[in-house]
């Protein structure tokens, strides 16, 4: 299948690849997907005292659309508050990247990854 230009751009020049220190209290880590399904996303956010996402990093095992979806959301969530980030919908991701129907699950996974990272961050702070 042919990939859209935006997918190709994110695949070839992925934004924010890397890892943050998962042990850091300011960092929330989301790990979603499964190797057996052919895609795994790790998304990490670093949140400041105002609840704003200062930094975001990802690593993805998957097809070009999965890589592009995760790369795109790291761009989108940076500078957003965690509340703002948590309302990002997979349909927005899919639409932005012009994902074909068979690749919609990649955008859903990216949405899940954001939620999981936020959840992890919140969990760390609820006990404090």
């Amino acid at each position: 299948m042919a990939y859209s230009e935006k997918v190709i751009d994110h695949y070839e020049n992925p934004r924010n690849v890397g890892s943050l220190d998962a042990a850091d209290d300011a960092v929330g880590t989301g790990l979603v997907g499964a190797p057996a399904c052919g895609d795994v996303m790790k998304l990490q956010i670093k949140v400041n005292d105002q609840g704003v996402i200062e930094d975001a990093k990802f690593k993805t095992f998957g097809c070009g659309s999965a890589i592009a979806s995760s790369s795109l959301v790291t761009e989108w969530i940076k500078g957003k508050t965690i509340d703002e980030a948590s309302i990002i919908k997979n349909t927005e991701i899919a639409q932005h990247l012009s994902l074909p129907p068979v690749k919609i699950h990649c955008s859903m996974l990216a949405e899940d990854a954001i939620r999981a990272a936020i959840q992890d961050y919140k969990q760390k702070h609820s006990t404090v």
Partner: peptide, 11 residues
Amino acid sequence: AHVEGEGLMMG
């Protein structure tokens, strides 16, 4: 190992 085939094919 640890590199998804379809993603690799795109590269």
